[in-house]
Design a protein around this nucleic acid. Structure first.
Ligand SMILES: [Zn+2]
Ligand SMILES: [Zn+2]
Ligand SMILES: [Zn+2]
Ligand SMILES: [Zn+2]
Lengths: 152, 152
DNA sequence: TAAGATATGTTATATTATATCATTTAAATT
DNA sequence: AATTTAAATGATATAATATAACATATCTTA
């Protein structure tokens, strides 16, 4: 379990990052994009696209899948959220712009996701790629298991 | 590009592994399971469930999705194939039974997949998990990029 | 204002995967 | 061998995830 005494703070920080990054890059942090980012950040658990869609529906008329997927793509593209391939789900990036390669500890009990970026691991991956004369473009590393709270 | 001079040999070895593993465990290497394993091994590229389904259809009447997914689940369960989460696809395991943790180099150009299992990387993951008091159950590591042939 | 680019709306459909229940086949038990 | 049980497969339906394609609106900037 992630200890965030004030999760509202997690959310507002994430939104601020969104604004900053869009400003820097001259992109538009539109209402939909903002709202989807908020919904992804509703918790530290993975958010499913169609769950986001439902929540969006409660506020904004009748959104459709492309609306959500477009927003998610935008957020992914700009490093504001990550996609968890093993779950077909999304989590907010905990430190947008500050890392190149990160990975995820996903608790299969409480479902919470911790984003990590040890340099060590990145280095090990680099070495391994080199050994295979492989040029790395992107890395997807997801570790499933029990978090501290849940395995205690 | 993977150099397998005789890919038939890859296939027959994979099938032999299937037979052996099922014998050892007292499981049935049924006709469907064998056929799906062969189809997964048709190349070193990721195989999609519905492509396998189509190929199966050309030989065996009118199979339906559950048929393929059941066979794939069985093969996954018994370490004969791996699922590539980032591609929703499957590859044959290149050394069934001989490793615990492996990862994949996936060439985005020729699509070929190389299965690796450096101990070093496994160790690095272990260290990182420990630092987070995380108990690892399974790891999904997929590296996208260019293979030797394709980046040359 | 007009032209171009970006974002969103809208409809339809593609792709991936599972639930459920019936039937068959194989194995174990009597 | 017949009976019971378990495992595998058949069959139908549907769930869950994601994208294509084209129309419209909004925002830029020339
Ligand atoms: Zn929080
Ligand atoms: Zn947990
Ligand atoms: Zn081969
Ligand atoms: Zn290649």
């Amino acid at each position: 379990m992630i200890h965030c005494e004030k999760h509202n703070h997690c959310i507002s920080t994430a939104i601020k990052h969104g604004e900053e990054i869009c400003n820097e890059k001259g992109l538009k942090f539109t209402a939909i994009r903002r709202k989807v980012l908020e919904l992804v950040w509703e918790s530290h658990k993975p958010a499913k696209a169609y769950d986001i869609l439902e929540k969006l529906a409660k506020e904004d008329g009748a959104p459709v899948p492309p609306t959500v997927y477009r927003a998610l793509d935008f957020l992914l593209q700009n490093g504001l959220v990550h996609r968890l391939n093993s779950l077909n789900a999304f989590v907010g990036c905990s430190h947008p712009g500050l890392h190149k390669q990160c990975y995820f500890l996903i608790c299969t009990h409480c479902e919470e996701v911790t984003e990590c970026c040890t340099n060590q691991l990145g280095k090990a991956i680099g070495v391994s790629a080199k050994e295979n004369s492989f040029t790395t473009e992107s890395v997807s590393l997801e570790i499933l298991g029990s978090c501290k709270t849940c395995s205690a």
